[in-house]
Amino acid sequence: MGAAISVRNVSKSYSLNQGGRFVALGNVSFEVRPGEFLVLVGPSGCGKTTLLDLIDGLSLADGGSILIDCVPVKGPGLDRGIVFQQYALFPWKTAKGNIEFGLEARGVPKAERAARAAHFLDLVDLADFGDRYPHQLSGGMKQRIAIARALSYDPEVLLMDEPFAALDAQTRERLQDETLRIWRQTGKTIVFITHSIDEAVYLGQRVLVMAAGPGRIVADIAIDIDRGADDLRATPEFVALRHRIWQLFHPEATAAARVVRDGVRQSTASEESRAS
């Protein structure tokens, strides 16, 4: 079972070259239950990667705390695995070698690595591609190897930073389904980042909507939909949730629609009064 994550009053700013500081995250708090599939969705530049790096321990927060099963994060650890948008596979290692790298980090004895790597290659459906180098794999295959590598050292939490954003639509949908399958099969806690509302609603049990300036969470939405439905994306529940999040993304668009509507109402009223 995956671990629980607590993010409490976390803030992070970057110093700028021209002096001063840029606040990337201001006072962010949320909780993730063990084994939950949480999606963070927000427009580009709202601080999603910054937040995920903090959870992974690749950088440290200026204020607040992050706890994994009640233990504060002080740096990277094998209790968390991360998958990046640009795959980040080691080009000098084969697919199998990349997965074994994760096992080696975990301290798995050499003799056991090959068998465990084969298991994870199988989990991502690439059993026959273990000897390929990354440049011999398609984008989707590379990302599956990266997922296998992150899972190989058996972390309790899997962090995914827009992992499918660079893939074509068909591959993306296929990998979304594979991610859900792996999540159900392994019971990991997943924190998944995306800027795609569609992807957020499709994958998440719960979606946190982020906004920029400074990066913060503006809504926490439970996704209660029947995942057994065919063509889930076309169901009214899916469309309604999608639209609700879209409105949160575009507060100005919603406001503008109101102005137009109100404006029309006002001008009709004034014409009526003139006519009378």
């Binding site: 321990g57 650890g77 094998l78 990046f84 790298f101 980090a105 050292y153």
Partner: peptide
């Protein structure tokens, strides 16, 4: 730098 991040995330 991404490879470095990737390796660091594995607590190397």
């Amino acid at each position: 730098p991404l490879l470095i991040r990737s390796a660091r995330s594995m607590a190397l």
